[in-house]
Design a protein around this nucleic acid. Structure first.
Length: 606
RNA sequence: GGGCCGCUAGCUCAAUGGCAGAGCUGCGGACUUUUAAUCCGUAGGUUCAGGGUUCGAGUCCCUGGCGGCCCA
């Protein structure tokens, strides 16, 4: 296991670090860091460990890292950790010049457990079938349930730069690829039963009893609650006729409500009955429509693929969990070794204005990539060790996350970042295959969000404001600020609550305008008279700060005094109230430009 | 009843047995600027508690506490 595996000697690591950093020169500008300090970074440490293990187990062969995904529903941001953890390690191994393959196993031959909320209840007739045999949810363009949920994940992985070898367990099982492993497991069923028995507790019989009282739907719901990359708890194959680690899908109804009643090692003839009334005897040396129970299936695949690194969720850390039991089975039955397998903690979400509550769904990688660029999402998974839980911000915090990312980027290029931060940045911004796409002019996310909020995405207004942000190097096309601009816009429109959006008033606040004193009327008049001559970001800045100065008898370039600052604040509050109905808002020059001169005149009583 | 993980600055986290560090927040300042803009500076610690190993412990061992997750 990961915790007890021998660490390579210090010298070995230093050598790796030198080789890693040698030969790659960074130009000061915009070339993402490909080499990085191999020190002080969890990815590097796992890579050291995995390489050493791989060379001990299978010298000269490609190093195998693996992930398992169950397409039983939306594949969410927690499941992404199942992929990102081995991806980052495999990528580091690849950067060091080793041959490595990252397998993503889609467990689409698992049983359909439960009809999720929002799907027609008639789908309950499919409970017990392989996920690849269940019709896709209504309205889907995909041929079956599994493909429907795999597709968006596959698209997200491409955008994230994750290189992998995908394996459909349906294809593997139904092609007979695992036949000899299945026959072996059946032959060794008594020993498997004995291994499982070590972890079955004495209270089991008493505990099982109440389960009988549950109806099918409740039982399915309870099982679904434990669902993960592979359920931590699942039918382990115990039946009245003895223990069998294999379960056939019924030839008639295609469900796994089957019970094995007899098996002959000599002929490989297996008899089963199904709740649908069907019963038959098949020859396991030819029959391909069934699978090993999860606790045997997983270690079988470790052995079959020669997996050296595969993480799993923390729910696998218990004594009787499939990871622990699998460690015994892979060694004692399949004669192979357990992968190095860190437990990863859960990924939380902060925010989520709309999506989760209405659809009953947790956000997916595709949702995250809608509001943030791929390198940023990669960074969130790279910067924390797998055993640390973290949150992905869908609320205002995303602005801070982006600020941190931009600051880190600057520091990395200046050479002032800490080694661990440099490493995380490098893993986020590029893979062994090269850098990920970036935004040519990465303006601060909060600025973009603020602008898009005011302009409601209107391209012409947006460009006008962006152009004036940096007059020395004006932005000439929105494309320079993409895709970050599009992410910010999507964030504003899908995640920012309506009451936090800036809404320029449709009609003038007649009552307020009528109640204004002479001094306030004069300030508005001064502003309106200056609009045409100051219609630029800088010009309007000068104007809005200048109006109170002129009123105080000062010149527009006078130094501010405490009294003047008070007057400015009052003036700004008045403008905000008249323009957006609140006493604060986006910086006024930006707001004025976005609203447009005609609307400003109307709202200010001009 | 058992297991895994965590506990370090106000917050989020670094630190491979060798001088406890970043980011954010806060505070102070600059920019004609208290905004949802930019930059500079600065403060901040009994590393959960107690014991042990060691020349040396945030780090390793033991006991306890608190928190999260899981199994039964």
């Amino acid at each position: 296991m990961a915790g007890t595996a021998a660490r390579p000697a210090r010298g070995a690591r230093s050598t790796a670090a030198v080789r890693d950093n040698g030969g790659v020169r960074l130009s000061r500008k915009d070339v993402p860091i490909v080499a990085m300090s191999a020190e002080a970074d969890w990815v590097s440490r796992f890579a050291d460990e995995v390489i050493a293990e791989a060379e001990r187990r299978a010298p000269g062969k490609p190093i195998v890292c693996a992930s398992g995904l169950s397409p039983s529903g939306p594949i969410h941001l927690g499941n992404l950790r199942e992929v990102m953890t081995p991806h980052l390690v495999a990528d580091e191994i690849r950067r060091r010049g080793h041959e490595v393959v990252h397998i993503i196993s889609f467990d689409d031959f698992d049983r359909f457990r439960k009809v999720p909320a929002g799907v027609d209840s008639s789908w309950s007739e499919h409970i017990g079938k392989p996920l690849s045999s269940v019709p896709a949810p209504p309205g889907s363009e995909y041929p079956n349930w599994a493909e429907h949920f795999k597709a968006p994940m596959i698209a997200a992985l491409a955008e994230l730069g994750v290189e992998y070898h995908g394996i459909s367990q349906t294809a593997k099982y139904t092609s007979g690829a695992y036949r000899s492993q299945i026959l072996l497991a059946m032959r060794e069923r008594a020993r498997i039963d004995e291994i499982l028995d070590r972890y079955r507790t004495k209270g089991k019989a008493a505990k099982k009893a109440p389960q009988q009282g549950l109806d099918e739907a409740e039982a399915a719901a309870a099982e679904a609650a434990a669902e993960g990359s592979g359920a931590a708890s699942e039918d382990d194959g115990t039946a009245a006729a003895g223990y069998f680690p294999y379960k056939p899908y019924c030839s008639v109804c295609d469900r796994d409500m089957t019970t094995v009643t007899a098996y002959d090692d000599e002929t490989t003839e297996l008899s089963y009955t199904c709740v649908c009334g069907h019963s038959e005897t098949v020859r396991l040396s030819e029959f391909d429509r069934g699978k090993l129970v999860w606790k045997v299936d997983w270690p079988m695949r470790w052995a079959y693929e020669g997996v050296v690194f595969e993480p799993s969720g923390v729910d696998h850390s218990s004594p009787g969990s499939s990871f622990v039991v699998g460690g015994h089975i892979v060694k004692e039955i399949f004669g192979a070794e357990q992968p190095i397998g860190p437990m990863y903690a859960f990924v939380g979400i902060s925010g989520m204005a709309k999506m989760s509550s209405s659809k009953g769904a947790v956000p997916t990688p595709a949702d995250a990539l809608g509001i943030m660029e791929a390198p940023l999402l990669r960074w969130l998974y790279a910067r924390r060790r797998p055993n640390q839980s973290f949150k992905i911000a869908f609320d205002q915090e995303i602005q801070r996350t982006y600020d941190e990312w931009d600051t880190l980027r600057r520091k990395v290029h200046e050479g002032t970042a800490l080694p661990a931060d440099v490493a995380a940045y490098g893993r986020a911004a590029a893979t062994a295959a090269g850098p990920l796409p970036t935004t040519p002019r990465p303006l601060p996310y909060r600025t973009l969000a603020s602008i898009v909020d005011i302009t409601t995405g209107h391209a012409e207004q947006t460009l006008r404001i962006l152009r004036d942000l940096d007059p020395e190097h004006p932005i000439t096309s929105l494309d320079e600020t993409r895709p970050r601009l599009d992410r910010a816009e999507r964030w504003v429109t899908t995640q920012v609550p309506a009451e936090q959006r800036t809404r320029v008033r449709e009609e003038p606040d007649a009552a307020l305008l009528a109640s204004l004193g002479d001094r306030e009327r004069e300030s508005l008049r001064l502003l309106l008279d200056g609009l045409d001559d100051h219609w630029s970001l800088d010009g309007l800045t000068e104007l809005v700060y200048g109006v109170p100065k002129v009123q105080a008898g000062l010149t527009p370039d006078a130094k501010p005094t405490p009294e003047l600052k008070v007057a400015q604040r009052e003036f700004f509050a008045l403008l905000y109230t008249l323009l957006v109905g609140r006493d604060t808002g986006p910086r006024l020059p930006t707001l004025l430009l976005a609203a447009g001169a005609d609307r400003v005149r109307e709202l200010l009583g001009g």
